[in-house]
Computed example of a mutant assay.
Amino acid sequence: MAKAKYLEVADELKKRIENGVYSRQEPLPDQEAFAEEFNVSRLTVKKAFDGLERQGLVYKQSGLGTFVSGDIPIKSALDSPANAFTGLRNLLGKKNIKSQILHFSVEFPDEQMQKNLELKKNEPIYNIVRLRLYYDKPYIIEHTYMPIKLVPDLDEKILHASIYDYIHKKLKLKFGHAYRKIRAAKPSEYDKKYLGAKDDDPMLELEQIIWLTNGQPIEYSVNRNRYDTRDYVLLDNNRF
């Protein structure tokens, strides 16, 4: 499956930034210039800029444009943006991420899940648990719930590939906003069995609800990883 255009643009701009084509603390050319160069829409360029901003490579100033960031000395290889919507395969590379399905079932939501996903008790959901492997090493356990009415015909083939690509490209649905909570936790039996966590290893847990652009919640999930495999980062910017 071909990479989305905005990701292709973002990849090229990232290479140019890393190679010093654009100087740090200097503004990038405007979106219209890149739209013409890459033969894409301004919206595509904006999405590419947004992705680079989440990675800490650029920052935006209201009325002035988008600037190349300076070096971030505390940055590490474990860093992952806490506010990304692209999924692991697009973030870390499709060839680098594999999925092992630990659980996949259809069930009716309990009271809490009815609230999380704004469902009635007779509206079924998927209950999915996947172990994500990065370069064939255990990386994250994802426990995901989704309404069947919004994500029909989900199957194991899709689970082994990318649920988000299926939602965005096949179902033509767009994420609008998300609420995310990050906290420390003690290891569960799943963490010990599949992530190799020891009894005293701290775990990092990301709990989230994602809504579509029309305001419907499409995902409630809890992702867990060992303390030494992934960090979550957020680039904060005062644009005024």
Rank of each mutant, 00 (worst) to 15 (best):
L78V: 12
D79T: 05
S80H: 01
A82I: 13
A82Q: 10
N83A: 01
G87W: 01
L88A: 12
L88C: 07
N90F: 10
L92H: 07
L92P: 09
K95F: 15
N96Q: 13
K98C: 10
K98Y: 02
S99C: 10
I101E: 02
I101F: 04
I101Y: 04
L102M: 13
S105E: 07
V106W: 06
E107T: 06
E111W: 07
K115Y: 11
L117T: 05
K120H: 08
K120W: 07
K121E: 14
E123L: 11
P124K: 00
I125S: 12
I125R: 11
I128H: 03
I128M: 02
V129P: 05
R130W: 00
L133D: 01
Y134G: 14
Y134F: 14
D136H: 01
D136G: 03
D136A: 09
K137L: 12
P138E: 08
Y139L: 02
I140D: 12
I140Y: 09
I141S: 01
T144D: 15
M146T: 10
P147Q: 08
L150F: 07
V151P: 03
P152C: 05
D153N: 11
D155G: 10
H160M: 10
H160Y: 15
A161E: 15
S162L: 08
Y166L: 05
H168N: 15
K169V: 15
L171G: 09
K172Y: 08
K174N: 15
G176W: 00
G176C: 01
H177K: 04
H177F: 09
H177I: 03
H177L: 02
R180H: 09
R180I: 09
R180C: 07
R180P: 02
K181M: 06
K181T: 04
K186M: 10
P187L: 03
S188M: 05
Y190L: 04
Y190D: 14
D191Q: 13
L195D: 08
G196T: 04
A197M: 02
K198C: 13
D199C: 14
D201S: 13
D201Q: 13
P202Q: 12
M203V: 06
E207S: 12
I209V: 14
I210A: 08
W211I: 00
N214M: 00
G215M: 00
Q216R: 02
Y220W: 08
Y220F: 06
